[in-house]
Design a protein around this nucleic acid. Structure first.
Lengths: 190, 190
DNA sequence: CTCACATACTCAACTTGTTGACTAGGTGGA
DNA sequence: TCCACCTAGTCAACAAGTTGAGTATGTGAG
């Protein structure tokens, strides 16, 4: 049920098409939630059926017709109810960690390569999030932004995504060092 | 398909019953993967059908009969193949973050309460992981352990879980400060 | 003596998330 | 002119995760 709420949270900024939502998700909500366009469209249909959002069809010139979705009062209520609910903690659920767990009796070189790849990916994400952060702050010092902005939710969740990826990159670096040192030791023992 | 591989990684330490695996999962793999017993038993059945693990029934006195599962050579191969594969990055996927994203137009007090609760939970996890870490190290300095231990996978994944929860707690603290300061400002404006 | 908790599972229904393919027109560059 | 990419979706099949309930016995605390 969380995708629903993530979509509604995204619609707080105003009406949007499914296609645009997919991009917004990719660009901002993706810090902590990801979904495919297919999932999004399916969910949007259901949400409309449940009266949480309303859709209007907009014909465009030179572009396919699109449907714009907006939060209904019921949707807004539902979202508020959701914010008031208790939320279960989650785990990381990362395949790479499963691979590292099994690395000792698996293909260590391949695991190291995966970690290196992930490290680069995480660092790229960090840079992207930093740019997004600068854009959100719009030149203001953080404290001033936080005191005056209409919404701080997007900023706070961005911070979480940012520190998550920083942490990922750090852990990757540390794990690589450990695995490389062991590799050297094992080679020396041969 | 990752649950399969997480189970196989857990079976690297030797034969185990479904019930025990559930506990092992809860205690160590849970740093980065969680699953319910039902999911586990279902997966074990499938894995046995696929020849990745073998089961033997053990009758016990004063206790229900149990089935012990062990990795087969095919399972070991499959696990090695998995470690050699590429792994997609994941996002956090945390309901609490969805709630924070929507907090500005939701029930801010309730969200703050949720963050406080989560902070405590994360801190408790950190303590638990620290204890687990001390147990794994068994009195050795980290570098010595890493150089001599048979497996470092469990230690490295534990580190990831540990820093994830530390990060969670830090973020919770920061978010609370921000939301409380805003609350004060908005009250003053009334 | 009862009640909670531990062991050791099983079944079923349901919701979410993933994967791959498909439609159909418009835009921009070599 | 062709090819790639952008807009704006849709459909179907399947895999994975969640929820709730049920079975049956044994142990230890109050």
């Amino acid at each position: 049920m969380s995708l629903r709420n993530a979509v509604m949270a995204a619609l707080l900024d105003g009406e949007s098409s499914g296609y645009d939502l997919a991009k917004v998700f990719d660009a901002s909500v993706a810090n902590f939630w990801i979904c495919t366009p297919q999932q999004l469209y399916r969910e949007l249909d259901r949400m409309e059926a449940d009266g949480l959002i309303s859709a209007r069809t907009v014909e465009q010139e030179r572009r396919p017709t699109k449907r714009l979705f907006a939060l209904t009062p019921e949707g807004r209520e539902e979202l508020t109810r959701f914010t008031a609910a208790r939320h279960k903690p989650t785990a990381i659920r990362d395949e790479l960690l499963v691979a590292v767990l099994a690395a000792d009796s698996g293909d260590v070189e391949a695991v190291k390569a995966s970690i290196r790849e992930r490290k680069q990916w995480a660092e790229a994400k960090v840079e992207r999030y930093e740019r997004l952060r600068a854009k959100l702050l719009d030149g203001l010092p953080e404290e001033e932004f936080l005191a005056t902005a209409e919404r701080v939710g997007p900023y706070l969740t961005l911070l979480r995504g940012l520190s998550f990826e920083r942490d990922n990159a750090r852990w990757c670096a540390r794990s690589l060092t450990v695995l490389e040192r062991r590799g050297a030791r094992l080679d020396a023992a041969k």
